[in-house]
Design a protein around this nucleic acid. Structure first.
Lengths: 338, 338
DNA sequence: AAAACTTTATGAATCGATTCAGGCTCGATT
DNA sequence: AATCGAGCCTGAATCGATTCATAAAGTTTT
């Protein structure tokens, strides 16, 4: 076990530990000769900085915690990737936690990040966690909400306008001739779900003609829950079935699509149109290519991490809300019937 | 800024710092009365253990690094999830790094994990990184290869028998009447790719009748590369096109499928059969439900983390190779033509 | 040539949890 | 009564990087 410390490097280079530390952290203030000698020693001894000691003394961490709602969802995979890219520019690594829409897991991860004294936390929250985040802030750990608008402005956030997205999706369904629309989504503890529903409601109410909007609740935003919801819809008498579905995300939509296709009684898009949300890369490759509301997922991750770093650099900064606009992507699943 | 230390807790509880530490780490050796007082003080002051100090002194870390080949691939999402589940049992968090098949990023992450002195590293490697892992081992950081057999047995590994998987996939294609098979995959620095190809070759050579097996190389294992490969195959004169494709993973397969469907000249499975590898959850929801070789992804993650923890507990353990068998999942994309 | 700066280097003090040799109490053993 | 051991507690030393007051050497200004 090597265990080469800064002291060994100093000795080998014939300088003091302070100088080695300076070479590591502010090489500009050290003579070129010393820099060279120290770097040689580091090379020769295979020295690797001990991050624990550094963190303890300097109080700065090089890791950022990311609490994700659903690690299985490619959308979050893309967001994390964006954050990772931005972080690697400044040597920041991501400590990763997947809550799977479970508040207990959410708490556990936040506790862990607190012990780790991460530089900051990115989180796509489940339910209301402001109090918890306030406590982290009191400890000097900033937080940025991801994919979720911070209504009270207590924290910065990077999100997509889910209300607008919901509205656009349903307006599109109406424009293509649908009048009996089902919103499939849940749980309603997830803000994005309620926002998308609110947008859908607004679109239905503002339509020129009468539009029915019903809500089909799901337990989670997964393919399996989508398939289950699809089965329930199929089981209804023909007259009570909707002629369009707006699913709260693409996983649900793909599950619904699967259920509808396997059953075969209702054709997409002829009998029933289907639109999702997120535009994950698999939406285009679906059995019937899926219309969706595209979110700039990677950009969301990049932006969130950038803001987080800015805030940790200057804690006086006022929280700001960054909202991207979603984009309607029309594919076969919402083609108008003839 | 609170900054409550173990010293404050000790004072508040009227005991020494050593006792507080004992309550935290081996409560059995402390009187019930002291435990109670210390826990009250912790509660009252809102004390949170400083992991950096703990790590520095005790030399044990509660994080494990996970270097993943392709964070976009849901397969790895599942594997990470498995590791996370297993880790949460013992309070282990995952430090996450996505290399995107880039050796430079791979190195960067390993450096970072070394500085962080993680408990151990799980890695699905690109190319040959044994030397690098040996160095980590010399520093007391164990590593377990994920989704990759360790040929020389220098490290433990948890993988799926890719050769067998490749063989089974191609045997299935042959059994359903295909004779001109294309293997689509790459880059060949990725061991899984070469293994799956080797299995495919074996199946082709052992077939009763003559079977053609050609290789269509791709730059990466992504949907986009799959679509590009599909375009190249379509562009050929009809007589030179294969009647079946074995794609090195499902992302490629979905890309291929997309290209074939958009073009429309070759129907899947009638003109050309298609099978992938991994059985990601989107395979079943594809335009033509995709046959695939299923890997027990979550189990791979769980097992890998368990082995890693066992090895860090006892460094004398001999590396062991855990190999799961893949399972053929037949769907519409390889239905025999009539 | 003295004074006033600059530049660069030094090394002890520090961060907070853990460890461990040593101390105290009290009941059991001789 | 002396000795021993079990049980529990104490607090100084420690891990390794950073910081900062201090000093030494070199340069410019007066």
């Amino acid at each position: 076990m090597a265990a080469v410390s800064i002291r060994d490097v100093a000795q080998h280079a014939g300088v003091s530990v302070g100088t080695v530390s300076n070479v590591l952290n502010r090489p500009g203030e050290v003579s070129a000769e010393s820099v060279r000698r120290v770097q040689e020693a580091i090379e020769a001894l295979g020295y690797v900085r001990n991050d624990a000691a550094r963190k303890l003394r300097a109080g700065v961490s090089t890791t950022v915690g990311f609490v994700v709602l659903d690690g299985q969802n490619p959308f979050f995979g893309d967001v994390v990737r964006g954050a990772e890219d931005e972080g690697s520019k400044s040597g920041i690594a991501i400590l990763y936690g997947n809550t799977d829409e479970d508040p207990k897991r959410e708490r556990t991860y936040l506790d862990l990040f607190e012990e780790q004294q991460v530089r900051g936390v990115l989180i796509s929250p489940y339910g209301d966690i402001n109090p918890r985040l306030e406590r982290l802030r009191a400890r000097g750990i900033a937080a940025v909400l991801v994919d979720r608008f911070s209504g009270d402005g207590r924290f910065s956030s990077v999100s997509v306008d889910s209300v607008a997205g919901g509205r656009m999706a349903v307006e599109h369904l109406i424009a293509t001739g649908r009048r009996r629309i089902a919103f499939v989504g849940g749980p309603f503890e997830i803000r994005q779900v309620t926002d998308r529903l609110a947008g859908a409601r607004a679109a239905a109410e503002n339509a020129r003609e009468h539009v029915d909007l019903e809500v089909v609740a799901t337990d989670a935003l997964t393919v399996a829950d989508g398939a289950a919801a699809g089965a329930r819809i199929i089981a209804r008498p023909r007259s009570e079935r909707p002629d369009a579905i707006f699913a709260a995300n693409d996983l649900l939509a793909l599950g619904l699509l699967q259920a509808l296709i396997v059953d075969g009684r209702m054709l997409v898009p002829h009998d029933i149109a289907l639109i999702g949300f997120d535009d994950i890369s698999f939406a285009a490759a679906a059995a019937v290519p899926l219309s969706s509301m595209r979110q700039p997922s990677r950009m969301i991750g990049r932006t969130a991490l950038r803001i987080l770093l800015e805030e940790t650099a200057d804690p006086e900064l006022i929280p700001r809300q960054t909202v991207f606009q979603p984009e309607l992507v029309v594919r076969a699943s919402t083609t108008p019937r003839r």
